[in-house]
Design a protein around this nucleic acid. Sequence first.
DNA 1: CTGGTGTTAGTACCAAGTGCTAATACATAT
DNA 2: ATATGTATTAGCACTTGGTACTAACACCAG
Lengths: 197, 197
Amino acid sequence: MKRTTKKERQQLLLQTIDENPFITDEQLASLFNVSVQTIRLDRMELSIPELRERIKDVAAKNLENEVKSLPIDEIIGEIIDIELDSRAFSIFDVKEEHVFQRNGIARGHHLFAQANSLAVAVINDELALTVRANVLFAKPVKAGDRVITKATVREQNKDKNRTYIDVISNVNNSVVFKGEFEMYRTKGIGENDETSN
Amino acid sequence: MKRTTKKERQQLLLQTIDENPFITDEQLASLFNVSVQTIRLDRMELSIPELRERIKDVAAKNLENEVKSLPIDEIIGEIIDIELDSRAFSIFDVKEEHVFQRNGIARGHHLFAQANSLAVAVINDELALTVRANVLFAKPVKAGDRVITKATVREQNKDKNRTYIDVISNVNNSVVFKGEFEMYRTKGIGENDETSN
DNA sequence: CTGGTGTTAGTACCAAGTGCTAATACATAT
DNA sequence: ATATGTATTAGCACTTGGTACTAACACCAG
């Protein structure tokens, strides 16, 4: 790489290290055609930590993420109250990662996921499956919004093993999502296996 | 910690390092009340790499995950073919993390997410929002299944800025999911901003 | 010519190791 | 009882990728 000014080099240094935190001072030095000492001085001025610290940071972030990313797929929203076969509430805080970058509006499937999860949870059965759903996205939801969702069991059909659930999601007391879920359950109502957890 | 046999110690060593990869040999030595050298020999036998390598591994995994975990939230399924405002296909490989532990059946919201993502993608517009959806989960989908989804634009309503899309998902040529999506778009058909990417 | 900025070189030191040799303890086998 | 094997410990030289510091030089501007 051609030798440039200090400013330019430091700008590139920041970028380069950001892209590849695993790069050593020696590699950087030969990349920018300066001495290792110059790179060290640059890192000092820009307060960029040494290689091993950088790697540690990345690794530490990873451990956080492991705890963070699992629940995203498992249950969407936190269930705050539940009365089996009757109704249930959950809260879902919309974050940056749930919205379209372009316009900041939450992707529909996250709202669906919250509603669907709640519909599954409210059913007092080991095996509850969604058969059909009609959903309406009434109002856009944005990052920072707290979505409060209520699922109500409307109807149980013992013969067909079906449960019909209405779900309504609100942000600031205003409806943002409505859904009707038709759920399939293996066992009849009130004959559950108590050994299950 | 009490001194025990080599076997026990090595078992615990494996576990301890797995739980906290950031621990040094010195810390381990005092934890197990043996010398640093013993710890080193143990690591050799168990082929556990040194601290800095362990940290690097964790960090490297992280960088993978960054590439890996973003699309999970951003787009569900990989789009394999698309003709804007007409049709699109995507593939979604169902993994363990997408299914109920209890019965191995995919949670409905993942299939919904794939379908919804595809419906958004097929629309040739910066801002496409789901207004309404009617979906049917025709057959259970299991871990290991490859879901192939097709979205077809059925109808465009210029006046209401609506697009109606039919989505069908198959596993092994058998329909597992059907959905009708009513989408809202900001711009009229064929008047898009070409500067956007 | 003097000063400030930028750069380079070199030294001592550190953490957390590897790799190797050697010593010691202790039980087991012959 | 002595020899052998396994487990443990100690010590030393060396490695990587640095920190912290000092000294030297080049250049450009006032």
